[in-house]
Simulated assay, not measured.
Amino acid sequence: MKLLDIGEVAERSGVAPSALRYYEDLGLITSAARKGLRRQFGPEVLLQLSLITLGKAAGFSLQEVEGMFGKDGQPDLPRDQLHERADALEAQIRELTLLKEALRHVADCPAPSHLECPKFQKLLQAGSITAEV
């Protein structure tokens, strides 16, 4: 098995060496050896880092991501948590879409003043983006 130097892992994964050291301290990844002071990793670390990056992008904490690895370091994805996160992201997308539409309406509203725009008034009275846009 060819080991990868921490610099090569950082370059190939896009994860900074400081983050690699931090992930190792947390137990998310494990170095296989050292060459001098430089950590050496097995090639499986690239898959693990991809999962960590994906998990973080989806809003999972590092502690939650840690639970997505089995004892052997291989992915063991909790499908129920993935469904919950997907549902939460879907709700967030709906809210952000409403906000985007509200901002576009306010920006393009032909009323002489935004305060004269009935839809903008409803938006302000509702205090949220869930008002009809």
Rank of each mutant, 00 (worst) to 15 (best):
M1R: 10
C109H: 06
L54C: 15
Q40L: 10
A33N: 14
S50P: 00
S128I: 09
D25L: 06
L49P: 09
R38D: 02
G27R: 14
G14F: 15
D87F: 07
I93P: 02
C117E: 01
A88G: 10
F69M: 11
E116M: 08
G7I: 07
S18K: 05
E90A: 10
Q81E: 11
I129S: 03
L28R: 10
L103P: 01
R85K: 05
L98H: 03
L20A: 06
L82Y: 11
P110H: 07
L37M: 10
I29F: 07
G36K: 11
G59Q: 06
G55R: 07
S50H: 12
K2P: 14
Q63N: 04
T30G: 12
E24Y: 03
D72I: 01
K56H: 03
L89V: 05
G59K: 07
E11Y: 10
L77P: 11
P78R: 13
A58S: 13
R85C: 01
T53A: 15
A33W: 09
L37R: 15
D5L: 15
G73I: 03
L51P: 11
E95Y: 08
V65I: 11
D25S: 15
G59Y: 06
S128K: 08
C109T: 06
D80W: 01
L54K: 13
E64R: 12
G42Y: 04
G70M: 13
V106E: 12
D108S: 06
L77V: 14
R39I: 09
L3F: 14
A19S: 11
I129L: 09
G67I: 03
P110F: 02
R38V: 12
R85G: 02
K35W: 07
F41W: 00
T53W: 01
